[in-house]
């Protein structure tokens, strides 16, 4: 039994300069083409188009 009910459902979407999109918190990720449905607490998504593991970042933007 909770004592104060402070269930956090706070989600932060952060554009990292020169890098991926970082999303943390309460989320549901869907990628129909890759058949992904997931609720990770933290995810880094490719923004440069070069990742070999789309939709996730694989740090190809550094190349």
């Amino acid at each position: 039994m909770g004592t104060d009910g402070n269930n956090k459902s706070f989600t932060l979407v952060e554009v990292i300069d020169g890098g991926p999109l970082k999303i943390t918190g309460h989320l549901i990720l869907k990628d129909p083409k890759k058949d992904i449905t997931a609720s990770p607490a933290e995810v880094y998504l490719c923004r440069c188009g070069h990742s070999c593991n789309k939709p996730y970042c694989d740090k190809s933007h550094n190349c």
């Binding site: 999303i23 989320l27 990720l29 083409k33």
Partner: peptide, 11 residues
């Protein structure tokens, strides 16, 4: 409880 934020990867 708020719904989760929807992150959809468009094809």
């Amino acid at each position: 409880e708020k719904n989760p934020v929807s992150i959809k990867i468009m094809m």
